[in-house]
Design a protein around this nucleic acid. Structure first.
Ligand SMILES: [Mn+2]
Ligand SMILES: [Mn+2]
Ligand SMILES: [Zn+2]
Ligand SMILES: [Zn+2]
Lengths: 143, 143
DNA sequence: TGTATAATTGAAAAAGATTTTCATTATCAA
DNA sequence: TTGATAATGAAAATCTTTTTCAATTATACA
C-alpha cells in the first residue's frame, strides 16, 4: 500500500524520465517549488534552498528553473521591473492574478477571452501567436 | 497662418510646460519617438538619435524616456525577455498587439474585459489594482 | 543684452540580474 | 565497480539600467 506520490516526487520523476539526473541540489529546489503557493524569484529560491543545502549555488537555481520551465512544471511570472518569478504551472492555459503585497498567486481561466483575442488580432490583420494576461492587486489577507 | 503643431512640437511643449528645458539631444529623441510606429528599445533609439546628434549619450536616452513616460507621452511595452521598449502612448486605457517580427504595434480597446477582470478578482478575494494584456503575433506584412 | 542659477549632459563607474566558462565532483547505465 | 558524461559551484563575463560627477548649457531676470 503505497501512498499517492507527492507533487515533488512527481516532478522528480518527470526530470529523471527526461534524462536528467537526480542530485541533492536539484531535489531541494524541486521540493521547494513544488510546494510553493506564491511566486518566487531565483534569489529567494536560492535563500530557501541554502537552508537545506548549504553549498547550493545560485547558478544551479537558474539551471533547475530553466529545466522545470522547459518541462512545463513551473511557469514564469513577469514582473513590471523586468525580473522574473516562478510558480508551479497551471494545467492547461490559465491566467494569473497576483498580490502586489505578498506575492500570492492564483490562476483563473478565460476561455471566453481567447475568442475575443483572435477576433481583435484578425481585425488588425495580425495572426495571433501568443498572449499575456496578468492581473495585479491585493489578496484577501493583504487588503 | 500657422500650421497645426506636429506631434513632436506638442511633446516638446509638454516637456517645457512641465519645467523641463529644451535641448538638442532631447529634441532629437522626442522627434524620433513622436513619429514612431513601432516599439523601440533604448539602444535602438540611441542609434537612431546619434545619426542626428552624434555626441548623444545613451544615458540621455534613458532619462528622456523616463520623462516622456512620466508625462504620459510614451508607454512601456513589456518584452518576454524582461527588457522594455517604448511606444507613443494611447489615449485612455488601451491594450497592445505587437508583431514579433518587425515590432509594429497597434492599440485596441477592451472595455468589456475590464468588467470581467474585476469579477475574476472578486471571485478570488482580490482587489484589482492593475492589469496587463498584450497580444503577440505577426502583422499583415510579416506573415 | 549679460549673468547667475539650476538643469542637463556624457563619460565613467556601479549596480543588478542572468549567462558562460571551466575545473572538479557525482550520477547512473552497463 | 567503473567509465562516460551530466551536474556542480566559483569566478568571470554579459547585458541592461542606474548612479555619480565634473563640465556645459538653457533660461529667468537684472
Ligand atoms: Mn489565455
Ligand atoms: Mn516589463
Ligand atoms: Zn497578499
Ligand atoms: Zn510585422
Amino acid at each position: 500500500m503505497s501512498a499517492s506520490p507527492t507533487m515533488s516526487e512527481q516532478w522528480l520523476s518527470t526530470l529523471q524520465n527526461s534524462g536528467y539526473r537526480l542530485t541533492g541540489p536539484r531535489r531541494v529546489i524541486v521540493e521547494i517549488m513544488a510546494a510553493c503557493e506564491r511566486a518566487l524569484g531565483p534569489l529567494e529560491l536560492f535563500d530557501l534552498g541554502r537552508k537545506e543545502q548549504p553549498g547550493l549555488g545560485l547558478v544551479t537555481v537558474y539551471r533547475t528553473l530553466e529545466k522545470m520551465e522547459e518541462l512545463g512544471l513551473v511557469q514564469r511570472v513577469h514582473q513590471p521591473n523586468g525580473c522574473h518569478m516562478y510558480l508551479p504551472a497551471a494545467r492547461g492555459h490559465q491566467h494569473l492574478i497576483i498580490c502586489q503585497q505578498c506575492g500570492k498567486a492564483e490562476y483563473f481561466e478565460g476561455e471566453d477571452m481567447e475568442a475575443f483575442f483572435n477576433q481583435v488580432a484578425g481585425e488588425h490583420g495580425f495572426t495571433l501567436r501568443e498572449h499575456w494576461l496578468q492581473l495585479f492587486g491585493l489578496c484577501a489577507n493583504c487588503k
